[in-house]
Design a binder for these strands. Structure first.
Length: 595
RNA sequence: GGCGCAGUAGCUCAAUUGGUUAGAGUCCCGGACUGUCGAUCCGGAGGUUGCGGGUUCGAGUCCCGUCUGCGUCGCCA
């Protein structure tokens, strides 16, 4: 070892000890006759002092610049009285350098890890090796490591077996786009990177490994978001001889452990569960942030009897008039801000408009549209929304779907604008009983809400024949602070139900066989009842770290256009490589760009 | 693919209504200084205002296009 200690562990107890520490030069304070060096590694910062009595060491120290890598040997001594630095855990001591070796010089960095103003994200991503030296990034990656360890420990305690499944798999053109990998041996054929190890883990169940877990990398070639990367990591689990409650209970226990170990929070189990219908009715979304109220109120019945044409025609045509009441919203949302919100719901969610009432100090409702309502109708709106003076009532009159989306969007926005929740609070809950299918209006067919192997609720089995839209699934999503942190289902394990579901999805027997033949085969050789879940590790880390951006939880993330700014992936490859794969690019200028 | 925000010195930002030689802090280079920890002081260097067009006597500023990053809708079984 080139060092005897790290830069974060020395203190008074080490006084007079001879040590060697290594690290990066965080800061140099040069007084000519004496130089202070803050030496940093991932454990902390230790002050090195070079005194005048050793001119050659002073000389070497004078050459130091930011981010040089150095080794310092010297004796620990207490700092003079009054010179302690309470900001550092090592702030009571310093190393009196007797030997200083520059292990490596560094070019002047575009930014330094300790600087106050963070550079733009593209600069951070290009020089990720410097960005990763930042305390916050190191803390997050350490947290990530601890979370994954806690997850693995928990799974090991509960008899799960860690199994690796292939990265090179078979493309199943369902759901997200696949990342494809051309085969050199089979020209014209492609592997697909897994969107999840779904099929493999089900096969592991059939193979009798009744508790499977994997920290699995997954790939989806879809557009990015703040909480979404094309390449992400999930804790993928599957269990045999279980029903929904067993999986949920298992994850309840894991969350209890994580909350305790990582955040020292005592979770009350079981975690609250909400049905999908309830979530949509109360919050307009299947992953609501339940750290604050502002629930949706249905005013459709009221709207049916008012003169105001906009409301009544919507209500009479079987659509919905729904509202949220924003506490203290009147002061924050001026007419101009409301105009912005109106544009927001129109452009982002296709709403026709946004109706609103301001509750005045005297309790009356003010709005340009108020004159269209009788006083008792206004009272009724106020009562239904439980609005108080200073509140702002926002109303969307539209289809169920649009009202859900728009009110969810508004609720989320006002939650942030008005700081309606404590950002450090953690709220865990389950959304259960998702619909089996949603209807694709364009193609006039059913789509699997989760995936085609999801089992229906026992009591909804009959609905598969009578009214597929009403059939609910044995599906469950773990929601943390309004993010889908994980989701899973109990799988169909009998071929009769499976072919019925394939039929509803418009997949003929032949079709299904071509796509999932291997799984269907396997299901016929003694498949136990089974189900599982996958937790988005990047998101869990983001939430536990209190971050709002998944890139900060990933060592080497990709940009919104799915490129890696440091390595400049993806890149154009040599024509020779392509020829070997029997592939030709149709992009003309790519070749020219190369030349 | 749609909508929105951003791009000015290595970094973080400023620049009045379109008006002189595009400024400041930091970083960098040189010098001074023995108790600093955002060290201090003196001096210096550093710019294709993302890129390409246009309008104008004059463009960092206005217009069009484009690139990159971010947010969001679509998308994500």
């Amino acid at each position: 070892m080139l060092r005897t200690h790290t830069c974060g562990e020395l203190n008074k107890a080490n006084d007079q000890q001879e040590v060697t520490i290594c690290g990066w030069v965080d800061k140099v304070r040069d007084f000519g006759g004496g130089i202070f060096i803050d030496l940093r590694d991932r454990y902390g910062v230790t002050q090195v002092k070079v005194d005048e009595d050793l001119p050659e060491v002073l000389d070497a120290a004078g050459k130091l610049r930011s981010e040089f890598v150095v080794s310092v040997t010297g004796k620990i001594r207490l700092r003079p009285t009054g010179q302690d630095n309470p900001k550092l855990s090592t702030g009571e001591i310093e190393v009196k350098a007797t030997q200083l070796t520059i292990l490596n010089e560094a070019k002047t960095p575009p930014f330094v890890p300790g600087q106050k103003d963070l550079p733009n994200e593209d600069t951070r991503l290009v020089h990720r090796y410097i960005d990763l030296r930042r305390q916050k990034m190191q803390d997050t990656l350490v947290l990530r490591s601890r979370i994954i360890k806690a997850m693995r420990d928990y799974c090991a305690e509960h008899n799960f077996i860690d199994v690796e499944t292939p990265i090179l798999g078979r493309s199943t053109p369902e759901g997200a786009r696949d990342y494809l990998v051309p085969s050199r041996v089979h020209h014209g054929s492609f592997y697909a990177l897994p969107q999840s190890p779904q099929i493999y883990k089900q096969i592991m169940m059939i193979a009798g490994y009744d508790r499977y877990v994997q920290v699995a990398r997954c790939f989806r070639d879809e557009d990015l978001r703040a909480d979404r990367q094309p390449e992400f990591t999930q804790l993928d689990m599957e269990m045999s001889f279980v029903d929904s409650d067993d999986i949920i209970g298992m994850i309840d226990g894991m969350m209890e452990k994580l909350a305790k170990d990582i955040l020292n929070i005592d979770l009350k189990l079981p975690l609250p569960r909400l049905t999908y219908d309830e979530a949509m009715t109360r919050f307009g979304h299947d992953a609501p942030d339940m750290r604050f109220g502002v629930e949706i109120v249905d005013l459709t019945d009221l709207a049916k009897k008012v003169d105001f044409r906009v409301f009544r025609s919507v209500a009479d045509s079987g659509k919905f008039v729904r509202a949220i009441c924003v506490p203290g919203g009147a002061a924050v949302y001026t007419r101009r801000k409301i105009d912005e919100l109106t544009t927001f719901v129109q452009e982002d969610f296709g709403a026709k408009g946004l109706a609103w009432f301001r509750v005045e100090e005297d309790g009356s409702l003010f709005a340009p549209i108020a004159k269209n309502f009788k006083p008792e109708e206004l009272d009724e709106i106020k009562a239904a929304t439980e609005a108080k003076p200073g509140d702002l009532i926002m109303i969307i009159a539209d289809t169920w779907e649009v009202s859900c989306k728009a009110l969810y969007g508004l609720r989320k926005r006002v939650g942030v604008d008005l700081k309606l929740y404590d950002p450090s609070e953690m709220h865990f809950s389950w959304i259960v009983q998702f619909p089996m299918f949603d209807h694709d209006a364009d193609a006039d067919r059913w789509n699997a809400m989760h995936h085609p192997f999801t089992a229906p609720l026992d009591e909804d089995l009959a609905a598969l024949d009578s009214d597929p839209g009403k059939a609910r699934a044995k599906a469950y999503d773990l929601i943390i602070n309004g993010y889908e942190a994980g989701g899973g289902t109990i799988r169909i394990h009998d071929s009769e139900t499976q072919s019925k579901v394939f039929g509803l999805l418009g997949m003929g027997e032949q079709d299904a066989k071509e796509r999932f033949g291997f799984l269907l085969d396997a299901l016929q050789y003694g498949a136990p009842p089974h189900g599982g879940i996958a937790l988005g590790i990047d998101r869990v880390v983001m939430l536990f770290a209190g971050l709002d951006n998944i890139r900060d939880c990933i060592a080497f993330p990709k940009t919104q256009k799915a490129s890696d700014m440091m390595t400049e992936a993806p890149n154009v490859v040599d024509k020779v490589q392509l020829r070997e794969l029997a592939i030709e690019s149709t992009v003309e200028d790519v070749a020219e760009e190369e030349a």
